[in-house]
Design a protein around this nucleic acid. Structure first.
Lengths: 155, 155
DNA sequence: GTGCATGCAAATCCTTTGCAGTGAT
DNA sequence: ATCACTGCAAAGGATTTGCATGCAC
């Protein structure tokens, strides 16, 4: 199964990262890694905490936050700030770089890729004397469904 | 003086907006508008509140937040979520659309424009059936100064 | 055995809310 | 005179912190 292979791969990657950085290989960290790589959504820390609890694991909120930060550091997880409320996370290993479109009405999130972003990144880095290693592009608008709903209501 | 002309312009714009939306023209709202258009930085609500207080105006934090939201609605102010802490704001009238590069080490923010973003926006909107009216692009990296400092330290 | 990681709860930070009082219309 | 706006303080939500305990090394 594909999911299982991916989990095996990131587990190995994470193990190596922890060893190289002399950090402890605790059960909690691997349970969280596996849970994250078993899902395909954008989740917040609380949701992860709840889902882990539902599966009868006893991991504290603090550990969830700590581990998420660790996973962001080793680039196994990407952290997003779509609005001023909670941060959202998603797995990022073996996932091609992508950006997001968000519907302001129903909050639907759609992912997309465009090679021009890479061009902008390298050109601007050079122009402004920055070494860019990361970016966030979010497009906000109305999805087709919501647009049609709103048009209908008005008429 | 250029700054004064801009303030006169946005004051008129804001006045019209308030009248059209049947909202009250209070002193607090215009004092905040003027303060915001007198600065050229990215500021948070607390900083605005403090600076207003330092100038001997008595405007509550709640009014600062309310007015910022109102100004965002009428597009006189743009709100940014650069990280998970406070939101940052900047004036947006008579200011060409721009994006941001942020140094992860010294937090310096530099603005830039690239016409390709507009192309991406319209192409993706069409492709994914969205009506896009807004976007955020942030590039993260190290500025030249910080890069040189870090290289120096290691050697 | 040592000291980093965890669990829990309290603390903190930013923002929103409730409500009484004020002032724009 | 009405009721939207303000000020104040309390509440709220997300995240961080402090400290005692436990477990990876």
């Amino acid at each position: 199964m594909k999911q299982q292979e991916l989990i095996a791969q990131v587990t190995e990657y994470f193990t190596r990262y922890l060893e190289e950085h002399q950090q402890r290989k605790t059960d909690e960290r691997f349970i969280l890694l596996e849970e994250i790589y078993s899902r395909n959504d954008h989740f917040d820390a609380e949701k992860l905490f709840e889902d882990i609890k539902r599966k009868k694991h006893r991991i504290s909120r603090a550990t969830v936050y700590n581990t998420l930060e660790l996973l962001v550091q080793c680039q196994l997880v990407k952290k997003h700030q779509f609005d001023h409320t909670q941060s959202l996370f998603e797995k990022s290993f073996g996932y091609r770089q992508h950006d997001h479109i968000i519907c302001k009405n129903c909050n639907k999130v759609v992912e997309f890729c465009d090679p021009r972003i890479q061009q902008i990144t390298s050109k601007m880095g050079e122009l402004l004397d920055f070494t860019i290693d990361n970016h966030t592009l979010i497009l906000y608008g109305l999805c087709g469904d919501c647009l049609r709903d709103q048009t209908k209501k008005k008429s």
